[in-house]
Each structure stands twice: as structure tokens, then as C-alpha cells.
Amino acid sequence: MSRSEIRVGGLGGQGVILCGTIIGKAASIYDHKHSGMIQSFGPEARGSSCSAQVILSDEVIGYPYVRNLDVLVAMSNDACHKFLPELKKDGVLLYEEELVSFPEGTRPAKAWGIPATRFAEELGRKLVLNIVMVGFFAGVTGLVSRQAAEAAVRDSVPAGTEGLNLKAFARGYEYGRELVGGAA
């Protein structure tokens, strides 16, 4: 059984939950896999940081939570260091490189950074940084297909903003593909 466990973490207002939702939706509705997304409830959800857990699987999902984290998508320094301990050995870290820093020697082996906030600002709306991260996730991990992710972006964002959001997605996706040495 192929099961991938993803956690998206960041600050409230960064669009963390929507990022997780789009990944889950891309997999379940457009890639025809199984997926489940659970956002963090509990005291932490009322503070400044928040997170979403996404499970992707070829089979029906039994255990709904993250137990063996494959991919951590970190949009803030706090979230990165809070969840890094649960990332499995040789798990993949994707992070907002201008917001996250690592004490000497603590950066995991498979870690890929992206200046997502700056890219979003360059596109004209800082708000779309979460969509840049969705693109980056798809580009680096290949866990959701580009077509599926784009379709999920299109029907998850407010009407009239699809063009901007698809550009944001493409920016993150292509940056990710380049980093891992694949064709964009």
C-alpha cells in the first residue's frame, strides 16, 4: 500500500489550511486517489500557528492522522521547528526559505527552500504564497499531478482570481522542478 503523509504548517493568515485542502483535493478528486485532510483543532488552532495533516493513499485510509511524516511543508520558522521532529528519516522538508532558518547542522538532508512570499509579492498579491507552496510541493514531490493540482487550485480560490493563482502555482511548480533537476 502506498501511503504518503504530509503536514503543512505555518502562521494563521498564510493560507495553510487551503494549501493542505488543495493538495488533498487534487489527489482525491482529480488524481482519483484516496486522501484525507485534517486541520489542527485544539488550543494551537487559536494561536498564531496552524497546521493541516494530509494523507494520500492508493487504498482506503484507515488511520486518519500523521504517524510517519513523509513531507513537511513549512511556511514559518515556528511551524518548521515544531514539526521537524516528526519528519521521518529521509523525509522531505519544503520550506519558505526567507522565513525559516536552521541552527548550524540541523537542516535535514532532503530539504528544499523557496522564497514563496517574495514570489507572491512579485506576482502582485502576497496572499498567494500558499498557492506558490502548492506548486512547489507538486513540483518537488510529484505526489499530485500538475493537471490535478491546477484543477484543484481553480475550484478552490475565489472566482476572478484563478489566473493569478494559476500563475502563482506555476511559479512554485517550475521552481521546484528546477531544484530537483526535472523538466518544468
Binding site: 485542502t21 488533498g24 482525491s28 484516496h34 485532510m37 485534517i38 486541520q39 483543532f41 486518519p64
Partner: peptide, 10 residues
């Protein structure tokens, strides 16, 4: 329950 209520799926 809380998990079924808050879990997002197809």
C-alpha cells in the same frame, strides 16, 4: 465524532 466531523475527504 470530532475526527469524522472535521476530516475532509471526497
Amino acid at each position: 465524532d470530532e475526527v469524522v466531523g472535521h476530516m475532509v475527504e471526497r
